[in-house]
Computed example of a mutant assay.
Amino acid sequence: MNKYKSVVWEDVQEGEKLPSYEYELSLLRLVAFVRASGLYDYVHFDGDYARAVGVRDAFIATPHVAGLFGRLLSDWSGPDASLRKLTFSLNKPSCVNDVLTVSGSITRKYRGEDGETLVDIDDLRISYPDADGAATGQATLSLPSRDGRPMQNRRATATKPATRIDPEMPEVAKAKIGVVSECSQGRSIPISEDELLLWCEAIEDWNPLYWDKEYASTTPHGRLIAPPFGMLLGPGSSVQLGLGYKRPGAATPLGIEKGLRGLPLLQSMRKGWADSSRPLSIPGYPELAVVKAETEFYTPLGVGDTIRVTEELLECSGRKKTRLGEGYFGVYVKLFFNQADDLAKCYTSTIFHYRV
């Protein structure tokens, strides 16, 4: 008998509200997420650095937002559901010590073309007292059905958005449009059980598929699977941001070689990290902010898997002015593959390259 309950599609009602929850975005949780994800970007734990780039304090990372939405969905649905798509916009930064309320409701219940039993949640929302809808989004879930039809992983080739040439984009971007490159976000070290537990602790997402090895072995997955939004950058991801660079064979960040200290050192290292982790670097616009993210999910990643990632710049805007500063909006697509070259997910993001 399954000791973890799951929602059945036939019992869902359109308009049904998902049980909301509160999440205090303490510095401890921000640091715990950095450790769990390997995303050692200073803006997500260093208030002084965040203020230097135009934000009021250290603020939540994009995959952290995705993780909170994922927890809302799996807390409600149970472990037998399968997430097909998540899209969200970051409308206002959620910063250290904000108390977040995460909510959503079912807007549509339907069968897919192949009979798959699906629900749409079109009003996902993360809010705090000064920001109703700091992040807003939509999701599609596949739920188990009483008809006994087994749920299947999606195996497909992602349909990428078309590239678009804006005549106002900088010349450096025109040369990068449509060029597919291997991304440093890939990893050759297999995903471990401990990494999944770190994620569960940071998000307080205790989906048994992520930690209960005995239970996971009885599911169609046959093993622990990774949270779909996990960065999973793995050990060594922090070298370019100043941790672990003394390891024999590791490259010393340029700012350290120059003898920089304090904020100038952090700015130098973050620029080097950003330049190496994105196919586009725009001279004079060193800061990055994700404003929208969309992920479609296919074969789940799990314990023992390695990851290969490709990235491509789809489009870049002309120069724009925003509350953060002046800069350019780039649209990127990343494809994540396991060691068997099965597509795991397709991640499309809109990133603002700016200067304060």
Rank of each mutant, 00 (worst) to 15 (best):
R51N: 06
G54K: 09
G54N: 10
V55S: 06
V55C: 01
V55N: 07
R56I: 05
R56Q: 10
D57I: 04
D57Q: 10
I60G: 00
I60F: 01
T62E: 12
P63T: 14
H64V: 01
A66W: 01
A66I: 04
G67L: 04
G67V: 03
L68W: 04
L68T: 03
R71W: 02
L72S: 02
L72H: 01
S74W: 13
S74R: 11
D75N: 13
W76Q: 08
S77Y: 04
G78H: 07
G78I: 10
D80Q: 15
D80H: 12
S82K: 15
S82P: 00
S82H: 07
R84D: 05
K85W: 10
L86E: 08
T87P: 00
S89R: 15
L90Y: 00
L90R: 03
C95L: 03
N97R: 13
D98N: 15
D98M: 08
D98Y: 03
V99A: 10
V99E: 12
L100M: 13
L100V: 10
L100T: 05
T101N: 12
V102T: 11
S103M: 05
S103R: 12
G104R: 08
G104C: 08
I106K: 06
T107N: 11
K109G: 02
K109F: 01
Y110P: 00
R111M: 05
E113V: 07
E113M: 09
E113G: 13
E113D: 12
E113F: 01
E113W: 00
D114Q: 15
G115F: 05
G115T: 09
E116T: 13
T117D: 02
T117C: 15
L118Y: 05
L118R: 10
L118Q: 04
V119F: 03
D120G: 02
D120C: 08
I121T: 04
D123C: 13
D123T: 14
L124N: 05
I126M: 12
I126Q: 05
S127N: 07
Y128M: 08
Y128N: 10
Y128G: 04
P129R: 09
P129L: 07
D132E: 15
A134I: 07
A135Q: 12
T136F: 00
G137D: 03
Q138E: 11
Q138A: 13
Q138R: 14
A139E: 11
A139T: 07
T140L: 03
L141M: 15
L141I: 06
L143F: 07
P144E: 11
S145T: 11
R146K: 14
R146A: 12
G148N: 11
R149A: 14
R149I: 12
P150Q: 10
M151K: 15
R154D: 07
R154W: 02
R155M: 11
A158H: 08
A158C: 10
T159G: 03
T159A: 14
T159V: 15
T159Q: 15
T159D: 14
T159W: 00
K160Y: 00
P161T: 11
A162S: 14
A162I: 02
A162K: 14
